[in-house]
Structures are given as C-alpha cells and as structure tokens.
Amino acid sequence: MNKLSLKLLLEKLMSRQITRKEFVMLKDDMKNSQDKDIDSALHSIWESSTNDTLMSIDVKERIRYNITRQVVMSERKKTVSWIQIVAVIAIPILFCLGSYYYFSSKYAFEPETFVVFTEKGQRTQLLLPDGTHVWLNSGSRLCYDTDFNKNSRNVELEGEAFFDVSQNKNSTFKVKTSNVNVLVHGTAFNVSAYRNEETINVFLVRGKISVENNADNQLLAELLPDQRISVSKMDMKWRVESCDAEMESLWTQNMLKFENVPATEVFRKLAYWYRMNINIENLNKDIRYGFTLKSESLKEILDEINKITPINYKINGKEATIKYK
C-alpha cells in the first residue's frame, strides 16, 4: 500500500475526498506524529488556502459581536481592578492631600468608541449590547461607545441603517446623524443619512419615533408607521409623507425571492431593491416570473428576463425603461 503524506491525507479530509482506508491511515499517522509534524502539514495547507469561500454573514457578525462584547467586558474588568489598586493606595493619600487626586481617577472611565462600517456594495448586520438589531447598508458607518446601554443608548450614523430597537422604557435609543437625531423606545425604522446626499430620510415600520434637530434638540416631527420624513441638510426644511415602509426596507433582506409573481409586482419590488425608477411599456398583465436574486445587478436580471420574455431596456442613472417586444 502506498504511504500517503500527512499533508495529502489532511487535504483529502478537508475536501471530503478521504476514503475509509485513508482515514484509518490518517488516524495512525496522527497518533505517531508529534505536534510539530502536524503543524508543518497544517501550515503548508494554510499558506496555500485562499479567501474565496465566504462564511454566512450571520455567523460572521455573531462572532464579531461576541468578540466585541468580550473585549468590552475585559476592558471594564481591567478598569475596575485598576481602580481598586488606586483606591488602596489613594485613600490614605486622599486623607493627607484632600480630594485633588480623586479627580484624576476619572480618566479611567473615558469610554472607547466602536466603529462598524461597510464598504461600497457590502451590507452587514450587527447586534448592539442591548439586543437592538441593526442592518447597515453599503458605504455606511455606525459608531457607539463602550458605555452604550449604561445610562443611554446613543449611536452615530453616517449612511443608511435599519434599526429594530429592543424595548426599554427607561432608556431612549438615539440615532445621531449630521443634522437630525431620531429618538425611540422600541420600534423598527430606517435612517438614511449619506454624506453626499442632500436630504436625510427616516421612515418607520412600527412603533413611534421623534425626529429632532441635531443642533438645538428642537423637535421636528413625530412619525407614525408607514410615514417618511425627508429633511433637507441645507435649510433643515422637512416634510412628512406616507410610504410603504415594508417595501422600503427590502434592502435588509439577503435575497429577494419571487415565485410565480405577476410582472407588475416584480418590477415594483425591483424598483425598491435597486432604488431605481422603473418604467414599463407594452406590459402583458398575465406575465409571471419566478426567480431569486442576491447580488446580481439590475442589468443582469433584465438580461435573464429578456431570455424568458423578450424585452428592450435602457438604464440611465436612477432611471430604467423597459419595453416588451
């Protein structure tokens, strides 16, 4: 029988190609190998491994959240033990020198800031320490301090995020943006405050929220479900209009699934998904589609649709025109 190297056996295990015989060989090999031999086999497999298989975003963000939580907890512990040591030394000194030194210890409480951000074309989800679920849209950043949830629940947002805020009557949840703040108790809503856009948009799915001016904390408006407020950054002029909040928050879904859905409905959803205006000509009302999309562009989808039902289309910035042949 050919003797296979440990590395090859491990590679076979990893690619699910290993046979029963080979597994027994691997088992024997492992038993007779020292850690350093296993290490060199693993190391060489590791160096040739690539980054092309992604883990599911839920798992990735769960681990990120757990790491952050443990970091926060261990830093807090450090602070406490440091304070304790200082207290033991400082109390006698305090008696002698008065309260002067007492105030220097307050620096130990300076909070750190966590920043979560997404690159262009990426989205992510995260769980804040109070259980609030946040979906962060592409090209956005969200900051919060290590003392989040201690006395207040404040986050700062640039870009767009959807919040499903966990209920806490005693602590208001506050989203600060460049110009407006959103105050809530327990609800689901979306804030869009991109730096390069002229307005800040907030819409509400359920619950109740207040929107205030960031500069003077003056109340602008209270929103009810399915309402949207747009605030102009230039002059802080605002208006409230009704909207379909559930459709507007479609982007938080990882994928969009259609099963035998009428074409009009499909295009309505696609318009929300891609944030485009879609105009349709010569549409036959009986056409139905079934497909799933994840990260495909509108162009790719239209090319697919063209294969089923021939169309001409033109995409121009935020405007798309589709003509059935």
């Binding site: 295990l13 693993l42 497999i45 491994s49 980054n51 883990m55 769960r62 681990i63």
Partner: peptide, 29 residues
C-alpha cells in the same frame, strides 16, 4: 478580511461549525 479563511480552514478539518466558530472567536480575541 481574514475571518472567512480561518473559519473554512477549521471547518474543513473538523466539519463542525461550532468548533470553527469557537476557534475563530478565540483566535481573534
């Protein structure tokens, strides 16, 4: 950038998502 690579490396060896998750978390911590 690197979490996915490590996750799939451990998952490949153990076929166990919980082990992979634990090790990624512990390593980055």
């Amino acid at each position: 950038i690197y979490a996915d690579m490590l996750y799939h490396f451990i998952l490949g060896l153990t076929k166990s998502p919980t082990e992979a998750e634990d090790i990624v978390q512990d390593t980055f911590l």
